[in-house]
Design a protein around this nucleic acid. Sequence first.
DNA 1: TATTATTAGTGTAAAAAATACAATTAATTT
DNA 2: AAATTAATTGTATTTTTTACACTAATAATA
Lengths: 236, 236
Amino acid sequence: MKYTNQTRFLVAVDCIVFGFDGTEYKLLLIQRGFAPEKEKWSLMGGFLLPEESMGDAAARILKQLTGLQDIYLEEMQAFSKPDRDPMERVIAMAYVALIDIKKYQQQINDDFHARWFPMKELPKLIFDHQEMVDTALNKLRYKAAFHPILFELLPEKFTLPQLQTMYEGLYNTKFDKRNFTRKVLSTKLLKKEKEKEKLSSKKGAFYYSLDQEQYKQTILTIQNFIPLTDITDTKD
Amino acid sequence: MKYTNQTRFLVAVDCIVFGFDGTEYKLLLIQRGFAPEKEKWSLMGGFLLPEESMGDAAARILKQLTGLQDIYLEEMQAFSKPDRDPMERVIAMAYVALIDIKKYQQQINDDFHARWFPMKELPKLIFDHQEMVDTALNKLRYKAAFHPILFELLPEKFTLPQLQTMYEGLYNTKFDKRNFTRKVLSTKLLKKEKEKEKLSSKKGAFYYSLDQEQYKQTILTIQNFIPLTDITDTKD
DNA sequence: TATTATTAGTGTAAAAAATACAATTAATTT
DNA sequence: AAATTAATTGTATTTTTTACACTAATAATA
């Protein structure tokens, strides 16, 4: 038994991969391998297969086209305007990934010529991919304001100046060092390491790492309208 | 020209309609009109048509099955496990709506026997609809903690006790009246009206209404890691 | 080896926001 | 007139946020 008289659609997944290299944000793009728009710059995309969920498809496509695996991938938004692909109607689900460029540089497979573009020097993208990127960046900014999500973008060990640069880059602004440090450390999410990073300064900056236990707890915490004393009552 | 050798899928939209009646949260459900699971309780769902976006489909389906229109509908999450519908694979996009039950009661068309169920007395739902509802409720709780989104759930004029009840209902807790009032008013989102609501108390409670101008500005405001003084610099 | 240059790291006072806590007010019902 | 019910309001304390500038550590250079 099947549903009759219903239209079936192509369903695709597009992966928006943001990366941070310690200084600026970049976007990972490839040159599309098939018509239409063959050879044009594109997000990592592909069609959904019959036996996989969309999340599985996103991971598969990213792996196939770049070699990247085991990275943070999150469903972002559907793009479903009937004419977004000139060839044929395709429903696209956009997924967003955040990675530390240096950490994953080796994983990236050169076969597909995936390339990092600084956010301010993006080439023209196919279809509505630029809209996808803009939407993703806005959502990332919004989310990072409440959520310690940006820690995911850093290597296991990172310095406070690096973290600050990352936040400043996302919002195109400068923060006060002392206040930023205090705020970040007050989350209790970071553990200070004994070694220093010596490449980017003469003095060297101490490494910190993410306290995974704390992180898992904190990521669920909610604020603002709910006094903290009430939150513990909420689990019923 | 079409994409060849690709599988096409049924795409559906399911609408999760939460309502608040001044006292408790309810969920709007209908009895499914076709096989499989005919007559079982279900979210308002239907298949995507060839010429509409998914957002359009959600609005159309909600209107067709309940009569409700012009309400706040937000894309929530895709549900795409290959076997979620036993008849045939269907990719479902869940949309969430929040409405004031009393305000829209008349709009609801009786033809489809849509019924409000208190959140604690939901019937067994078809397929993965219960999972959709649970996910939506969690996201709503999370979002409402930062976002004045719950104001959307109230009629044009509402009282502070009503608003407080709504927040308390969402988190199953009690807030201090004085602190809640102060916090809500500090958002500057509310305008005090001259009339009182007299049904639920002898003294009567003053009506408030949403200051639409302020609301549009505030809804974009972000906090926590970004000092407020920096936010204005962000627009580039 | 002394000097210079560069970035990391740190404290405090003032202002703002969050919290805990209970008496008074307005209106209706008896 | 008294009793009942729910709305409304303030203050003192604690916590958090903000603004602001000098010292420390190291490498490069004179």
